[in-house]
């Protein structure tokens, strides 16, 4: 659904741009294509790595790690798995809901969802390409630490 909106916006703006200035529009398309090509090698590498990691971290394995362990160890495991996995939200949320129903703790699920979104271990090469090693690692570390706080807060808020 958001992809449709994205295309609508892109096409509409492209049309406006082309109507106002053909030359500039051509340059915009070229620049976009160039930026895409420049990230392509890292992108392919990341996709291949993600495919392997997703195959190893199957939904069953994720639910075992998050589902069985409770307490801090469970939160830690959930954050680690979330940071490594690269699952789109529309797959992750129903899976997380399923885990909640089958007895996983709110704190573990919140940690998993938070770290899934904010931490990207596999996409680190792409982040390093644009932000440098230092900033990329620092951002992921801070986001990882923040997941524990977020998890505790969400668990507290839900329990009210």
């Amino acid at each position: 659904m958001d992809t449709v909106i994205l295309y609508a916006i892109a096409v509409a703006l492209l049309a406006v741009s082309a109507a106002r200035d053909r030359e500039k529009t051509k340059r915009a398309i070229l620049k976009g294509a160039k930026a895409f090509e420049s990230i392509l090698p890292q992108l392919v590498t990341v996709l291949l790595a993600v495919a392997v990691i997703l195959a190893v971290f199957s939904p069953e394995m994720v639910s075992r790690v998050i589902g069985e362990r409770s307490g801090f160890l469970g939160v830690l495991a959930a954050s680690v798995v979330g940071g490594i996995a690269l699952i789109p939200g529309f797959v992750a949320f129903p899976a997380a809901a399923e885990l909640l129903k089958s007895g996983a703790g709110t704190m573990q699920i919140a940690a998993f969802v938070s770290s899934l979104m904010m931490v990207g271990v596999v996409t680190l090469p792409m982040e390093v390409r644009y932000f440098g090693r230092r900033a990329a690692i620092a951002r992921n570390s801070l986001a990882f630490a923040f997941c524990f706080l977020a998890a505790a807060f969400v668990a507290w808020a839900v329990s009210l």
């Binding site: 916006i9 892109a10 703006l13 492209l14 741009s17 500039k24 529009t25 340059r27 915009a28 398309i29 070229l30 620049k31 976009g32 294509a33 930026a35 895409f36």
Partner: peptide, 10 residues
């Protein structure tokens, strides 16, 4: 990336 190019130019 198309939006990115348009942003860059406009």
């Amino acid at each position: 990336f198309l939006l990115l190019g348009l942003l860059d130019v406009w």
